[in-house]
């Protein structure tokens, strides 16, 4: 008797496992389409092969100039302000030369240069390690080079944060909404437990607008298609001396820093 009961339980277990498994298979492969309809890009959408940014720090005259740029981005994207650095979320911020371009410093470098500020954000790398690491493709690379986040899909494993060598990613450790001072209805907020970062304002590019930071930068941030030989970014990058953060890692950052500054193309 007891053997039969055991057999019964085993079979019941198997049937349940099978049921769960197959229901999953069915939902996983369910046909997607619902009606004879389609999708297209917005009429104003700006196409590009590889969006890139040049940072010209000589155009930022004061701390206030930088704050203005940061504010523009963080306000628009509902980036919360947490009182502690542990939960901090940032899309674009400033750090000094010494830390931005970490590694192997000239010890005689002037204190002033050492601590001069630089704008930092996600580099939208051409070979992004964060995209490689993500197990759900919540972080993905668009055909225009932008490394984007699908907040709906992110499971919050933070593998991408470990993979990004630039510290560009933030995680929503807490519900961000109570910490947003002034709500912008132009962009959704995030749910707790997902990763976020700069998205090169792809929602604005779709409306034919430049990124919010670029707009407020007085020419300090130059944005364009690196693939287009006539674009301003391409001209600067090909003729002036620019540096990038940690180029030795081979991620090919799309954010270039113009050294020396001055007038450009």
């Amino acid at each position: 008797m007891s053997i039969n009961r055991r057999q019964f339980l085993r079979r019941a277990g198997m049937v349940t496992a099978l049921g769960i498994g197959s229901s999953f298979v069915i939902t996983g492969f369910r046909k997607k389409d619902a009606a004879a309809s389609g999708y297209t890009k917005a009429a104003k959408d700006m196409p590009a092969k590889r969006w890139a940014m040049v940072v010209d720090m000589s155009k930022f005259k004061s701390e206030a100039d930088m704050e203005k740029v940061i504010e523009a981005c963080h306000k628009l994207h509902n980036v919360p302000k947490f009182p502690n650095t542990k939960d901090e979320i940032k899309w674009i911020w400033k750090d000094d030369y010494h830390h931005t371009f970490a590694g192997g410093h000239n010890e005689y470098l002037d204190e002033h240069v050492m601590h001069s500020p630089f704008m930092v954000t996600c580099n939208h790398c051409e070979n992004p390690p964060c995209v490689r690491a993500c197990p759900t493709e919540a972080t993905f690379q668009r055909p225009d080079g932008i490394v984007a986040m699908d907040f709906h899909r992110c499971i919050g494993c933070r593998f991408c944060m470990a993979a990004c060598p630039f510290g560009a990613r933030s995680f929503n450790f807490k519900d961000p909404r109570p910490f947003i001072e002034e709500v912008s209805t132009e962009y959704p907020t995030r749910t707790p437990g997902v990763v976020e970062k700069c998205n090169f304002c792809y929602e604005r590019l779709a409306d034919g607008l430049m990124p919010a930071c670029v707009e407020k930068s007085n020419g300090g941030l130059i944005f364009g298609d690196l693939d287009d030989p006539n674009s301003e970014v391409r001209k600067i990058v090909s003729t002036k001396l620019t540096i990038r953060r940690k180029p030795e890692l081979g991620t090919q950052p799309s954010v270039y820093y113009l050294v020396g500054g001055g007038e450009h193309a």
């Binding site: 009606a35 004879a36 309809s37 999708y39 890009k41 993905f140 055909p143 984007a148 709906h152 792809y202």
Partner: peptide, 15 residues
Amino acid sequence: REEAVRNGQTVYINS
């Protein structure tokens, strides 16, 4: 959601 977020197709053409 998939089309707008992932494929940049922000306009829907209905039936």
